[in-house]
């Protein structure tokens, strides 16, 4: 009961609740796109490359969030550009940006004089320390992403399904791809505050794959992902509160648990269906 009392008593839990709602909307929508388009490792690359921006911001005395955003957007566009224009393999270019970003981050944090505060919270996330300013940004981003997907649902679906065909039809393929890369980069950076660099990828893949177990419809996958994401984040937060473990890891663990429960449920449903078929009356 302490957790539920805490919801109303402490602002930090209040903030955490609102943050997880916004984060569920952002990750639910973007993750469905990322999973459907098999871009999980692209988003992993963007996430890790943004660590370079965090390190540089520490060194220059800027807000780490700004540095991360700049690096994330640049690497997102870089990956999109290289995969179309360059002669480098797509997965290789992701690997290069991934480790280069981390290396830049480590170098700058090393040469920054004195102690670097909150470094761990960027690596592993800390939803309980989200500030009001960050909450406002999260809310705006969640709204922009939701509107973008509602307004351009069909073009997004069509371009990501068959890019070559869309190009042959003179659909604005590049505009749509780059806009989505921009939203993904910003979405990842803001969610680093919630789950941390190392764990944010699972927020973009676990709820979506759970949803995909029960639906093959893009719209439904988005809606289910948001719900699963929110439920998982809530349960994970409660777990971290009760057990005294880090919130980011607790959330990811809960989301994984939900995925496996979904998988078992699906197997059971399929068995039941097969049995029902067996007992159908013979004509």
């Amino acid at each position: 009961m302490d957790f539920f009392k805490g919801i109303f008593e402490y602002t930090f839990i209040n903030h955490a609740l609102i943050a997880s709602l916004f984060s569920s909307v952002i990750c639910g929508i973007l993750g469905s796109y990322i999973v459907s388009k098999r871009m999980v490792f692209i988003s992993g690359g963007i996430t890790h490359a943004s660590f370079g921006g965090i390190g540089m911001a520490f060194y220059l005395g800027l807000p780490p969030f700004v540095g991360a955003a700049v690096f994330a957007v640049l690497s997102a566009f870089g990956i999109e550009w290289i995969s179309k224009k360059g002669n480098v393999r797509n997965d290789s270019s992701i690997g290069i940006l991934w480790s280069l970003g981390m290396a830049i981050g480590i170098i700058f944090i090393y040469i920054t004089p004195g102690f670097t505060p909150n470094l761990m919270s960027y690596l592993f996330g800390s939803i309980l320390t989200v500030s009001t300013g960050e909450l406002v940004f999260m809310g705006i981003l969640a709204l922009v992403i939701a509107l973008f997907f509602i307004l351009f649902y069909h073009p997004i679906l069509f371009v990501s399904f068959d890019e070559n065909f869309a190009k042959a039809q003179k659909a604005p393929v590049r505009l749509i791809n780059y806009s989505l890369m921009l939203l993904i980069a910003l979405g990842i950076v803001i969610n680093i505050r919630v789950a941390g660099i190392i764990l944010v990828m699972s927020m973009l893949t676990l709820p979506q794959n759970t949803a995909n177990l029960f639906s093959n419809n893009f719209k439904q996958i988005i809606l289910y992902s948001i719900l699963i994401s929110f439920a998982g984040t809530m349960a994970g937060l409660a777990g971290s509160f009760w057990l005294g473990i880090p919130s980011g890891a607790s959330i990811i663990f809960t989301l994984t648990l939900i995925f496996f429960m979904g998988k078992v449920l699906k197997i059971l449903i399929e068995r039941l269906k097969r049995k029902q078929k067996q007992f159908l009356p013979v004509k």
Partner: peptide
């Protein structure tokens, strides 16, 4: 329906 994704259909 994706066969309609010509330019005029974005909005």
């Amino acid at each position: 329906l994706s066969g309609l994704s010509g330019k005029k259909h974005l909005f």
